[in-house]
Simulated scan of single mutants.
Amino acid sequence: MVRLPLTPAEAERGQRLGALLRRARGERSMLETALDARVSPETLRKIESGRVATPAFPTVAAIADVLGLSLDEVWAEINLPEHGVESGSSRRSAREWLAS
């Protein structure tokens, strides 16, 4: 399977997701958070750093649950209006995100 390069919008959303997860994790260790979410610490590190900008929905849901974030909060954060892009022009719907 060949992965297409990320669009600038996808990369920006990945950065916002990572920042949200880092803020929500606070002083909690990355190792503890990853183990509680049943993901590898390396996966969590890559998501938080934006290196994995489009993680699988179950992974995001598990991490959000451990950090006490609702999926609505996550969705709202990663879909903030993009600079210089008209509202809705490159945004995926919740249904599309769940299907990916």
Rank of each mutant, 00 (worst) to 15 (best):
P58F: 09
A62E: 10
R23K: 14
V39D: 08
L20S: 08
L6V: 12
R16F: 05
L31H: 11
A37W: 00
E32M: 09
L69D: 01
G14H: 07
A9W: 03
E96M: 13
E48H: 09
V74E: 10
A24K: 04
L4W: 09
L67C: 12
G18S: 06
E77F: 05
D72H: 09
L80M: 07
D72R: 05
W97H: 01
T59W: 07
S90W: 02
T43Y: 06
K46P: 01
S90D: 14
I78T: 04
R45P: 00
G14F: 05
D72I: 07
R3Q: 11
A62K: 09
M30E: 14
S29M: 08
S29Y: 06
A62W: 00
F57G: 11
R13G: 00
L20Q: 05
D36C: 14
S90L: 13
Q15G: 12
G84N: 14
P41Y: 00
A56N: 14
L69Q: 01
A64F: 10
S89L: 02
R51M: 09
D65V: 01
G26V: 13
L67P: 04
L21C: 12
L69N: 07
S93N: 06
E32V: 08
E12D: 01
R23Y: 00
S40A: 11
G88F: 12
L35P: 03
A11S: 02
R23V: 00
A37P: 03
W97I: 14
L98A: 15
L35Q: 01
V39K: 04
E42P: 00
G18N: 00
Q15K: 15
E12A: 13
A94H: 02
R51N: 15
V39W: 04
A56R: 15
A24T: 09
I47R: 07
S89G: 08
S29H: 07
R51Y: 07
G88I: 02
R92Y: 06
V85T: 06
R45S: 15
L17S: 06
E12N: 08
S93L: 04
V39G: 12
A76R: 15
R23S: 03
T43V: 15
I47N: 11
A9Y: 02
L21G: 09
A76S: 13
T54Y: 10
I78L: 10
V52G: 02
R16V: 04
G18T: 11
A11P: 01
T54P: 03
R91G: 06
R38S: 14
E32T: 15
A37E: 07
R25T: 12
G14Y: 06
L20R: 10
G26Q: 13
R3N: 11
T59C: 11
E12L: 12
A94M: 15
M30G: 02
E12I: 01
F57C: 09
L6W: 00
R16L: 08
A37T: 02
A34K: 10
